[in-house]
């Protein structure tokens, strides 16, 4: 029973494509965000209402976080990806609190996909910002001997990104499930509170690490030290 609760279940099949509950929940989150975006867009005005004020506050906070780390000319280019990452991971983490639903981030396939996107995004923005040649040059600097270590670093940090989020969220849901089975109704409430905190923290860490990787790609030398130290701290 526990295995069925923790694993990804196939909820539908579109031709040869099997749709798991992870993908279905993701679609639900996408629908929610789409509706929210359309609602805000529809009600957008110079004198903001409460919802618009909330959205503006969130976007302003994300924008300021990006301004502190990224070069000024890259902020607008990177903001949609990082902001979506933060919002999606946070929402996906918190979805597990709803009875009958599971966090998509407790599925290694989903976190791996996000980590792969971060990996690709860091190179995409790096190439766009500095050019193909300049972007890949820093892998052989100061010596070509460091190239394998750079490649290992890239792979390991991407894996770490995927596994960290997956491990935290899966263990959280597993612990909540075990307590619920053993202790009964209402007892796991404090654990659910911990779930909220952990969900926020893991979303923040994931988004911040993605931001740091992208910033490192944009300013390789300047941010290399910051990236490593931040990763160690989060670990």
């Amino acid at each position: 029973m526990i295995g069925s609760e923790l694993g990804a279940e196939i909820v539908a099949k579109i031709g040869p494509v099997e749709i798991t509950n992870t993908v279905a929940t993701t679609w639900g989150i996408m629908l929610l965000f789409t509706l929210l975006a359309l609602l805000v867009r529809w009600q957008l005005q110079t004198e903001p209402n409460r919802l618009q004020t909330l959205v503006e506050a969130v976007l302003t906070a994300i924008d300021e976080a990006l301004i502190e780390i990224l070069p000024p000319d890259s902020v607008r280019r990177v903001l949609p990806f990082v902001a979506t990452l933060w919002l999606f991971v946070l929402t996906a983490n918190l979805v597990g609190l709803i009875p009958g639903l599971h966090s998509p981030t407790r599925d290694l396939s989903a976190t791996s996909a996000l980590a792969a996107l971060v990996f690709a995004a860091s190179h995409w923005f790096g190439i766009r910002g500095r050019g193909l040649k300049n972007h890949f040059r820093h892998y052989i600097e100061p010596s070509i001997i460091l190239l394998p270590f750079h490649i290992i670093s890239e792979i390991s940090r991407t894996l770490a990104l995927a596994v960290r989020l997956f491990g935290n969220m899966m263990s959280l849901e597993m612990a909540a499930l075990l307590v619920l089975l053993i202790a009964g109704f209402l007892v796991p409430v404090p654990l659910l509170m911990l779930h909220v905190v952990e969900a926020v923290i893991q979303a923040y860490i994931f988004g911040m690490l993605a931001l740091i990787y992208i910033a490192g790609a944009l300013e390789a030398e300047a941010n290399e030290t910051t990236s490593n130290s931040s990763e160690e701290n989060h670990e």
């Binding site: 805000v40 959205v55 976007l59 902001a83 599925d107 396939s109 989903a110 792969a116």
Partner: peptide, 24 residues
Amino acid sequence: TFILEILNFLVLVWILKRFLYRPV
């Protein structure tokens, strides 16, 4: 799931960028 999640996320980025981030 891996591929669908990638596609989902990219679509979500486009939707939010088109209808939320840019206007706001």
